[in-house]
C-alpha cells in the first residue's frame, strides 16, 4: 500500500516538473521581446522585467521536487559510497529524518502562513505595473509541499528497501 503511495507521489512530481519545465520558453520569449521593444522600437514595457522574474521564480521552484525525483540535488557521497548497501540505505533514512523532514515540514507550513498573510491583504507588487503577487506566494508554498511529498516518497522507498535487505 505504502509503496503505491510512494509511486504515485513520484509520478505526480515527475509530471508537474515536466509541465513546469516548459516555462523556460515563455521566459525566453519575454526577455527577447523586451530587448526588441526597447532597443528597436524605443517602447520598453512596464511589465517585462517583472513577468520575467515571476516566470524564473516559478520555474525553479517547481523544479525542486522534480530534480529530487532524478536524484539530481548535488551531494558528497564519496564517504557513504564506501559503505555496504544496507548501511547506505540506513544513512539515507537517517539523514532524511534528521535533516530533510523537520526542515521541510516547517518550511511548508511557514510558506503557507507567508502566503496566507499576503492573500488576506491581496498583496500586489510594489511597482508601477503592480500585479498581484499573492498567487505566486501560494505557489511557492505548494512547491515546498511537492518537495516535502517527494521526501516522504523517498523515505517510504528506503524503508521498504531496508526491510527487504
Amino acid at each position: 500500500m505504502l509503496e503505491n503511495v510512494s509511486e504515485k507521489l513520484t509520478a505526480l512530481n515527475r509530471k508537474e516538473g515536466e509541465i513546469a519545465s516548459f516555462l523556460i520558453y515563455p521566459l525566453l520569449f519575454i526577455v527577447v521581446y523586451e530587448v526588441v521593444m526597447r532597443y528597436v522600437f524605443n517602447a520598453p514595457t512596464i511589465w517585462g522585467f517583472e513577468a520575467t522574474t515571476f516566470l524564473y521564480g516559478l520555474h525553479f521552484m517547481f523544479g525542486f521536487a522534480y530534480t529530487d525525483v532524478y536524484d539530481g540535488h548535488v551531494k558528497v557521497d564519496i564517504f557513504t559510497s564506501l559503505l555496504s548497501t544496507k548501511k547506505q540505505i540506513f544513512m539515507r533514512i537517517f539523514t532524511n529524518i534528521i535533516f530533510f523532514l523537520p526542515v521541510m515540514i516547517c518550511m511548508t507550513i511557514w510558506a503557507f502562513k507567508f502566503a496566507i498573510t499576503s492573500t488576506m491583504g491581496l498583496e500586489v507588487n510594489s511597482t508601477s505595473w503592480a500585479p498581484p503577487i499573492w498567487p505566486l506566494k501560494i505557489l511557492m508554498a505548494v512547491c515546498f509541499l511537492f518537495l516535502l511529498l517527494q521526501g516522504i516518497s523517498n523515505l517510504i522507498n528506503d524503508i521498504n528497501a531496508f526491510g527487504k535487505k
Binding site: 540535488h73 557521497d77 532524511n96 535533516f99
Partner: peptide
C-alpha cells in the same frame, strides 16, 4: 559526509 544532498544539509 553523511552523503545527504548538500542543500538539505545546509538548511538542516
Amino acid at each position: 559526509t553523511f552523503g545527504h544532498p548538500l542543500a538539505y544539509t545546509l538548511a538542516g
